[in-house]
Nucleic acid binder design. Sequence first.
RNA 1: GCCCUCGUAGCUCAGUCGGAUAGAGCGACCGCCUCCUAAGCGGUAGGCCACAGGUUCGAUUCCUGUCGAGGGCACCA
Length: 540
Amino acid sequence: MIRDTLAAAVESAAAGIGLDPAAVTWTMERPARREHGDWSCNIAMASAKAAGRAPRDIAGDLVAALEQADIAHVDSVEIAGPGFVNFRLTPSWLHDVLVEVVEGGTDGYARPDVGAGTKVNIEFVSANPNGPLHAGHGRGAAYGDSVARIMERTGFDVTREFYLNDRGVQMARYAESLLARKRGEPVPKDGYGGEYVADWAAEMPDDVADAGIDAVRSWGYDRALADQREVLAAFHVHFDVWSSEQALVDSGAMDAALADLRERGHAYDADGATWLRSTEFGDDKDRPLLKSDGDPTYLLPDIAYHRDKFARGFDLLIDVWGADHHGYVPRMRAGIEALGHDPDEFEVPIVQIVRLEREGKEVRLSKRAGDIIELRDLIDEVGADVARLTYLLQSVDSQQAIDLDLVTSRSNDNPVFYVQYAHARIHSIMGKAAAAGIVRAPLADADLSVLTHEREIELLRTLSELPEVLTRAARERAPHTVTNWVRELADRFHGFYHDCYVIGDVPADLTQARLWLVDAARVGFAIGLDLLGVSAPESM
RNA sequence: GCCCUCGUAGCUCAGUCGGAUAGAGCGACCGCCUCCUAAGCGGUAGGCCACAGGUUCGAUUCCUGUCGAGGGCACCA
């Protein structure tokens, strides 16, 4: 890559004038402003203190040395601002990018090895199996799955996992609520009042209800899980592993975890309960593992669960949690440290809440669920692609308001259609070319040097940024940076489409080169949209 | 009271591992279809990057505090 070429040239030049490039941290980056060239290096400023010289003075020597070196694609090197060394390149470097994109294709282009084979377990959604998924789960599902896709592409060995809290008080209340509804009675206090409970109770066979609360719970569990699986499938999210809390209890894994904690001296008995000494690991207070009635709290099975994940050989555990659970992070991390693991091996991205609005007012999409907005209804209304891209439009750190009027509108202010339309135009061009009997010659025969139009250059420049974007998206677990890139690619493509006709009154060699450029854009959209879990239509 | 996330253009949001004149889309206003879909393209206007200190050659970015929004604070998950 060009960046490496330039960095190597800088290192060599720096060494040549008596600096030690390895001793300072410096960067080779794309300047924010185009006037500052194509690539910019801050090594002169970074070395100033150690060298005891003025940054611009060092930069001057560097530029002189770099001008002597014959570096591929470099048009000029100059000093700018406080001491930046800026490189201006000839368009040829972007023609090389085009070849790289087309030859690499969807599978081969932009595969930076960030993970180096790290085994990572990404646990997300993990909704309780006692009701349908809601819009908040949708954001977590879109995020978790997209992070998984990005990490897979960047050299991580990824497992997608769903944890089932199929044990405990919540499940008991759910079963009681189902049974009460089945019998036409009001749901008990602290029960589940959503209309889906009544609907599902109506579906429940009489013999299940007659068989008692355990049978009802079991039936209700299956019913809820089937519902969630169905919606996730419609959302194009799949899981490799479904783990059960109850199974951890039944297998003795939970007891083993507690014994482990005791052995390590991080668990103790007091006030009739058993406690985790989480304060030892930075938590505010110690947390109960076993309640005073002897039943486990949710924390102990969770610790056992994470212990199990590590036992399965994962180097890194990522739990995607909703904002309402963030206070739980310190004790979970404490539990992991208590088991002897490095806290850096456990990460918890927090997904902030989602609000759905119509005409500026909060809406409740579901008539059935009462107080929840079902993911199913959202998908039914806008489609899985639109829902996913919309969720991934912004960072999960900030709260999100989804305007349903906007999202369903077929207008300029809808970013989903903007991107999809750009993609559709690619196929429109290819279709026109085929209809006109134009055959795309082999890439090796195309003269890419004719691609010099500002729009063509900008389009290629955006394509060239994808490896860096993916590196960052993977490190920061930030799918929205990919969304931003895809939007920019769409922006560049629309501009190109508008000003640069591929077919029509253009020379044959330009048509050929542009057809390859269009194909490169297609590869870019295919990679980007796939990472977001969004398919793109070939026509609209 | 303590902890977490957020506060950037009228609106919705990027950017922030410290860098050169802070970006996009929408909305507003002005333009562009004899030619691959105008679901598009171009232009103009619009900012004390919540506020106050600190660190630094340099802070929207890092640290501290204040204010505001949201969320969480053992035996619900």
